[in-house]
Design a protein around this nucleic acid. Structure first.
Lengths: 140, 140
DNA sequence: TATTGTTATACTCTATAACTATA
DNA sequence: TATAGTTATAGAGTATAACAATA
């Protein structure tokens, strides 16, 4: 697969596989799906509306309905009526969701750190610096 | 989501979303699923056995059977009997699979280049350098 | 006996279209 | 009329377990 990508894209795609692997392995370790772990990560910052959650995850609203349903059924999240708009819901973590989100996050970070820590310290600093700058561009 | 990751892992995860988005958008543009495009990318280097393909994609063998079935049904790949082992199959691209693989690859690269090209030239060089080194570590 | 791959089964994930309820 | 979210439906993706054929 590497051969057909130019350098920067090659490496980005290659590393994406590692991040996906970290998410797959970690979520499985805690009896979650990768998508459920994603939800827990997004909600760690606090409850959000379904619309906002869907945009964060790049999902159609009906896809999100199902995902939140399954998360709720597993006791990870709860739907709370929006106090201002009776059509809307906010989604927040349960204690269990908070706990698994923390542990899952830690598992992903640990796996990724295990990889990046093998770089020379100067390279680690450069990696963080350039990636952070690139991530900022992607956010604009 | 950013808030709970330390710098390097944060940016890696954030950029993974961009790569996934590039794959999602591109594959959709060509009427493929992201997983099917992945298969085309792996097979671009030449036919491989089911076992090797499964390892490359980190899939259980039964999952791969289904994925290859659907790719075959769409005319993207063909199964060819292994000449040495009558239990085994090799999977290769059809002309259509080759064509869509090329175009899909180009679409992903174009999207990612559009992002990285916004970095200063010196940063682009640093990005490629460090990411390539990190990818090499992940391959060991 | 061990290995290669498929089948059977059960979920999860996702999108499109149609719908309900509220704004 | 427009928006927030759900339901109905269909297909894709994945894993586990049991199985067939070959080594």
């Amino acid at each position: 697969m590497e051969a057909i990508y130019p350098p920067a894209a090659t490496a980005l795609v290659r590393l994406t596989h590692e991040v996906e692997r970290a998410f797959n392995d970690t979520s499985r370790e805690f009896g979650l799906t990768p998508q459920q772990l994603q939800v827990l990560c997004v909600l760690h910052a606090g409850p959000v509306g379904m619309g906002e959650l869907g945009r964060a995850l790049h999902l159609e609203k009906s896809s999100l309905t199902g995902l939140v349903d399954r998360c709720e059924r597993r006791g990870l999240v709860v739907r709370i009526r929006d106090s201002c708009d009776r059509r809307a819901w906010r989604v927040g973590l349960t204690d269990e969701g908070e706990r698994l989100g923390e542990q899952g996050h830690q598992g992903v970070v640990t796996r990724l750190d295990k990889l990046t820590s093998r770089l020379a310290p100067a390279d680690q600093a450069r990696l963080t610096d350039v990636l952070t700058r690139l991530a900022a561009l992607a956010d604009e």
